[in-house]
Amino acid sequence: MIEREDPIKTAVTTAVCATMEGMAFEQMESIEGAPDQLESEDKNLWVSLEIVNPCRGQVIIELPWVYADLVARAMYGEIDGDIPEEVIQDTLAELSNTLAGRFMLELLGPDLDYGLGFPITGKGFCPSIEDRIQSLHFAGSGHNLRVDVVGNDFKEFSEKLTKTSEVMT
């Protein structure tokens, strides 16, 4: 039986695992069927990064504040007391930048060029996401994290780049 892999899903999963392990020493696990909302609105943090070339879209990461704090502590090392809010947001922005770059590299391969915008961070739930074409959940250190890929342009890319793999059933 031949099953078609979704290249966007594969690229996001590889990017999340490589980025979180490489930057925050987090071992991530992909989870299916997780609830769409992670925590109550006042306890969440999100970051959105625009993909500007060769197709337009966004990569959005949403996670509980407590997990963002834990990731920032892992990256900065020993920090006594509270981490300033702007440091946590900057950490998340840098994670999104690396994750989006890795995602595009995985999706397009090493020969095609791509461009990224600047990350925008916010507290609470990310404002309404239209054209969401992929939403994936991951778990690490007892917390969940959601990655959304937004933009219909990606669908075309997905169709062009879909790989087939033979899966023994």
């Binding site: 930048n97 690396t98 770059g101 595009m104 590299l105 397009l108 090493p110 095609l112 060029d113 990224l116």
Partner: peptide, 9 residues
């Protein structure tokens, strides 16, 4: 150092 590092770039 960059997150945008294709071979062409």
């Amino acid at each position: 150092i960059s997150s945008m590092s294709s071979q062409a770039r």
